[in-house]
Amino acid sequence: MDFIEGTATEAVAQSFAGTADPRLRRVLGSLVEHLHGFVRDVEPTIEEWEAAIGFLTAVGHMSDDQRQEFILLSDVLGVSMLVETIEARKSAAPAHRREWDATPSTVLGPFHVIASPEREHGDQIFPAGGKRPCVVRGRVLGPDGTPVAGAKVDVWQCDENGYYDVQLPEVPNGTGRGLFTADAEGRFWFRSVVPSHYPIPTDGPVGRLLKASGRHPYRPAHIHFILEAPGFVPLTTHLFVADSEYIDSDAVFAVNSSLITEFARVDDPSSAAGVGLPSPYWSAEADFVLRPAPEPA
């Protein structure tokens, strides 16, 4: 059959109709339908389509063990957050699907590329001497408020200048990262520095895309978390620093008002000595509420 504009989508979709896996068959059919719809809508020239392929090729070439440009592209297009939001809604047990039952999911981001070192409660994940040293305390809870003892809490963040360890060759890998185990009351805590806002990497194709579209590349200051425990849906989320710049215009659309957290200044030498920090220091506290995993079918 001739490949003509009017029947092209049907012809390509039909070519995948024999795909054995039903989920893959659905995905391929939907991909063909929407991709062809996009092409029909914008009617790219051959030169534009070649430029698009070149852009995706450059995204692949920019990705390596220390950086994932495809995740960055997904983030700035809002796809990462959309997938997270849909997955959170789908994966919760039916009795716990209300949005206010659990801490919102957010994007993983492009810098969760190495394993976090195991840490003890109160460990300092950055070397001492920062301008705004801080203590972060958290609790891991079920939707009914029951502590989730033994939950694994993976933490990573940038420094006070907006850089992650993997961006600085002189900084040991694992700096600004930690893997904690919640105690019997679901609690964990660590010492760090208040992170800075920072630009996502702009030296690659995603940065060129943002520049061409007139968008800024900045993320508000935040700390990343992944929380996992048996019987619960794993949670990827953030804490955002309340007074940070760009809190209303995150380049990757991850800010949720319930995740904005006050890092309060504590000017009390006695309190500072109790946590092993100079005075003043900054203190933040947050509860992380996990969704129960669905019952096995």
Rank of each mutant, 00 (worst) to 15 (best):
I125E: 08
D268R: 04
S15Q: 04
G274A: 13
E295M: 13
R25N: 11
R177T: 07
E47R: 15
P172W: 11
P195Q: 01
L290Y: 11
G176S: 09
V79Y: 12
V241E: 03
R265Q: 05
L82K: 14
V155S: 08
G176H: 12
K90C: 05
L141S: 01
T7F: 00
A264Y: 04
Y281F: 06
D243M: 03
L227W: 00
E43N: 15
G109Y: 05
G274R: 11
T175K: 07
V83L: 14
E285S: 12
V193F: 11
E245Q: 14
E285N: 10
V155N: 06
E295I: 03
V166M: 15
E48T: 15
N161H: 12
A149Y: 00
I114N: 01
A8H: 06
H96C: 07
F288Y: 09
T7Q: 11
Q167M: 14
W189N: 02
E87I: 00
A212G: 11
R98A: 04
I86T: 07
F188M: 08
F188H: 05
A115C: 08
W156R: 07
L73Y: 10
A58L: 11
H121S: 13
I125F: 02
D159F: 04
G174D: 02
G162M: 09
V136F: 08
W100Q: 07
A88T: 08
K211A: 15
D154I: 15
P220E: 02
F55R: 11
P201N: 08
V194N: 03
L35F: 14
G207W: 10
D154K: 07
S279M: 08
F263A: 10
L141V: 00
E118K: 12
K211D: 15
A115D: 10
G176R: 13
A93I: 01
D154R: 05
A254N: 09
R23T: 06
G176A: 09
V140Q: 01
E84N: 14
A242K: 15
S116N: 05
T202H: 04
V107H: 00
E295S: 14
V27N: 10
H222D: 05
V39R: 14
S257F: 10
I247V: 10
W100P: 00
R291K: 13
S80A: 13
E99S: 03
G54S: 12
R132Y: 10
A92I: 00
D159H: 02
P147T: 03
S116T: 06
W189G: 04
D2R: 05
V79C: 12
R119H: 06
